[in-house]
């Protein structure tokens, strides 16, 4: 074959410019190995083409180099912004979540605070009531202790147990009389509740004569019963009796006798 003809056939340029088919390409590479002139022709054209390309260079903007270098940088360096991006998204999502949670907590806390405030106010009221009740109960207990001490532990106190009479045989009341201080105490064990215009009256009997020792308050028969009723003092007595009189009492007994007992 004629090497010169082959070189001038355009195959060299076709090959260098990438316009040959794979078969032509393989054939040309084979020819280059066999014929140094063909190889030289190829290199000459390549250099001419390179020179021509450099002469006709179009300078890219200087910023492109950094973009290109970043594009070829190791994978991890390129992955980093993606990862930080996703962290940032996760972070903002997380922040939104926290904000939402805070709002819910705040609302919850507000509701809880209001309900606790109301509950606290009720508890304070109840506490105040209880303290008052306790104080009065404690006071009452002290009074009762004093009264018990006065009548039960005092050797000068005499007792008259008054039994029920005709109108109400089940009635029963007790009088404690301090012979030294002359104080009279009455315990109403059992008496029927009087009509609102009537009142029981306690009498001391001395030498057959009744002496007024005081009225029994009708409140005794309503609500909390007072254990020991303080009556009027009496200087001397052999027996005691209770009669039912008009409201406010009478100077001498007029109504029926409910109880009677000797000292």
């Amino acid at each position: 074959m004629n090497v010169k003809e082959y070189i001038s056939s355009g195959i060299v340029e076709s090959y260098v410019l990438g316009l040959t088919s794979p078969e032509e390409q393989a054939e040309f590479e084979n020819m280059c190995r066999q014929y140094p002139e063909i190889l030289q022709a190829r290199i000459d054209f390549e250099l001419a083409l390179e020179r021509q390309a450099i002469q006709n260079a179009v300078e890219p903007p200087s910023s492109l180099k950094q973009k290109v270098i970043q594009a070829i940088s190791p994978a991890e360096a390129k992955i980093v912004p993606i990862i930080t991006g996703s962290i940032a998204t996760v972070k903002t999502n997380w922040l939104k979540l926290v904000a939402a949670a805070c709002a819910v907590l705040l609302a919850g806390s507000l509701y809880w605070n209001i309900s606790q405030y109301n509950r606290n106010r009720k508890l304070q009221e109840t506490y105040r009531d209880l303290v008052r009740d306790y104080d009065s109960a404690a006071l009452r207990l002290t009074e009762i202790e004093d009264e018990i001490a006065m009548i039960a532990l005092n050797p000068n106190v005499k007792m008259a147990a008054m039994k029920g009479m005709e109108p109400s045989p089940a009635s029963f009341a007790t009088v404690y009389w301090d012979t030294t201080s002359k104080d009279v105490y009455l315990v109403v064990n059992n008496l029927p509740k009087p009509a609102s215009d009537k009142q029981y009256q306690l009498w001391a009997l001395l030498d057959g004569k009744p002496i007024d020792v005081g009225m029994i308050d009708n409140d005794v028969f309503v609500g909390q019963k007072k254990l020991l009723l303080r009556m009027k003092n009496v200087s001397g007595a052999q027996a005691f009796a209770i009669t039912l009189e008009k409201k406010g009492g009478n100077p001498t007994p007029e109504g029926p006798m409910f109880t009677l007992g000797n000292l």
Partner: peptide, 28 residues
């Protein structure tokens, strides 16, 4: 070689911006 290669690309791709994008692809 970026200039010479951009010249080659620009002879085929008319749009300047696109030619630069292609040049980046070329170096990658």
């Amino acid at each position: 070689y970026s200039g010479a290669l951009l010249g080659v690309v620009s002879a085929i791709v008319a749009d300047k911006e696109t030619a630069r994008d292609v040049l980046q692809e070329v170096f990658v």
